[in-house]
């Protein structure tokens, strides 16, 4: 990337104040190496002296004291205004909007969470029903088999519930 003379003019102050990043500084200096006009211009700007005027402020306790008094008065007035306006300084309809906005938001959040919970419960219930149905089919099949085969060997009990999703209340 190369900078042109306008770019240098826009970066003169931060370059003189050493506020450019190292990368930008290098780009500016690369341009200055090859551009006598910009070098001359920046040299002129570097001679500007912004020395603070030696502000000799004659001590002004009276003024600051007067200002403190005035601010105290203003503060009292502000408190009185707020007290007169009631606990909430906003107008009733703004409060209504804010309240109804808050209630709406709360209701929406509740509805969403209920909907989320019930959807989740429903999904789990479907899974549970399916599992139970498959177990019942399995039992039914076992019953048919045992009815058709006489006598039967003693069998291991069927383990039913370990994979069933929880169906209780949340």
């Amino acid at each position: 990337m190369r900078l042109d003379c306008q770019d240098i003019a826009d970066r003169a102050a931060p370059w003189l104040d050493q506020q450019l990043s190292p990368g930008e500084t290098e780009l500016v200096e690369r341009h200055l190496d090859g551009c006598a006009a910009c070098r001359e211009r920046l040299e002129l700007l570097s001679e500007q002296r912004f020395e603070r005027p030696r502000l000799v402020q004659v001590e002004a306790p009276d003024f600051w004291r007067a200002m403190d008094d005035r601010l105290a008065q203003e503060h009292e007035r502000l408190l009185a205004e707020r007290a007169a306006a009631g606990p909430t300084p906003t107008s009733w309809w703004k409060r209504e909007i804010r309240l109804s906005g808050a209630s709406l938001a709360a209701a929406a959040a509740l509805a969403l969470s209920l909907a989320g919970v019930s959807a989740w419960q429903a999904a789990r219930a479907v899974q549970a029903d399916a599992a139970l149905a498959s177990v019942q089919q399995e039992l039914e099949r076992e019953r048919r088999l045992s009815a058709s085969r006489e006598p039967t060997l003693p069998r291991e009990p069927v383990v039913l519930v370990s994979h069933l999703p929880y169906r209780g209340s949340l």
Partner: peptide, 17 residues
């Protein structure tokens, strides 16, 4: 005369100001 005052004085860089 007793009012708070501010003096821009001395070797100011008047050119710049």
């Amino acid at each position: 005369p007793d009012q708070a005052d501010l003096v821009f004085h001395g070797e100011l860089r008047k050119d710049v100001l």
